[in-house]
């Protein structure tokens, strides 16, 4: 095996892939959030629709988004492979009684991740797929015709079940990030007694603020 394959197949290498893809997705969430926050502007959705148009047509964003999908897939598939490997490592007979002394979210990254994946499918089907291939009416903003995604979103967020699903999924995302953010740094070896508290603080703040802002949007739109 050359060094690259042994890196990718070692337990440490696999973890590294989880961490790198995870951190990329963390960055992506910020970009996504900035766009979504346009929904809160009381301009009848113009700003949001311009943003959606930009995201859907800018060649650089298009390239990055392919990467984004790839990273989501890799993150999920590698997680599955690792989980299967780790299950096997316990051996055929497991414990009858277990009082694991780790935090619940640290132990439940697989479940949380699966919930997020299910949410992603619903989410993409509802908006991204509509935007790309669906029949979204056009509106004119600043003299340009753009797809009126705002109306699609607004309509969706009038459904209380849909809003609940969003809020619930953002909770899952929050827990996932609560562990995942700092964990990625730990896995990459970016750990230093001096900076660990900052990483942990930023990670936890991120895990609360970003999902909370995501979740506020549907609630706000539902109430208005």
């Amino acid at each position: 095996m050359n060094w690259f394959t042994s890196l990718l197949t070692s337990t440490l290498g696999r973890k590294m892939i989880m961490a790198l893809t995870g951190l990329f997705l963390v960055l992506f969430l910020v970009i996504h959030l900035i766009g979504n926050l346009q929904l809160l502007k009381s301009d009848g959705g113009n700003a949001f629709n311009v943003y959606a148009q930009f995201m859907g047509h800018n060649p650089l964003i298009q390239t990055v988004s392919i990467g984004n999908f790839a990273f989501i897939l890799i993150h999920a598939i590698w997680a599955l492979l690792l989980t299967l490997h780790n299950r096997r490592s316990r051996g055929e007979v497991g414990y009858a009684v277990s009082n694991n002394s780790s935090a619940w979210m640290s132990r439940s990254m697989g479940i949380l991740g699966t919930l997020i994946l299910i949410f992603l499918i619903v989410h993409l089907q509802g908006f991204w797929f509509q935007m790309k291939f669906g029949n979204v009416p056009f509106v004119t903003v600043d003299g340009k015709d753009v797809k009126d995604l705002y109306t699609v979103v607004d309509a969706a967020y009038q459904n209380i079940g849909f809003v609940a699903l969003y809020v619930f999924s953002m909770c899952a995302l929050g827990f996932h990030l609560w562990h995942g953010f700092a964990s990625a740094f730990q896995t990459l070896g970016l750990n230093h007694l001096k900076y660990n508290p900052i990483i942990r603080f930023v990670g936890r703040a991120y895990a609360i603020i970003v999902p909370a802002l995501f979740a506020i949007i549907p609630i706000w739109m539902y109430l208005n």
Partner: peptide, 30 residues
């Protein structure tokens, strides 16, 4: 198995070996 940074090992280690070691190993390895 592969480490998923749950921290159970550190919490149970009778000699208090710290998770910092794992980060250092990761760094050393890469």
């Amino acid at each position: 198995g592969a480490c998923t940074n749950t921290g159970a090992c550190e919490a149970e280690c009778p000699k208090g070996i710290s998770l910092t070691n794992i980060a250092r190993m990761n760094r050393e390895y890469f």
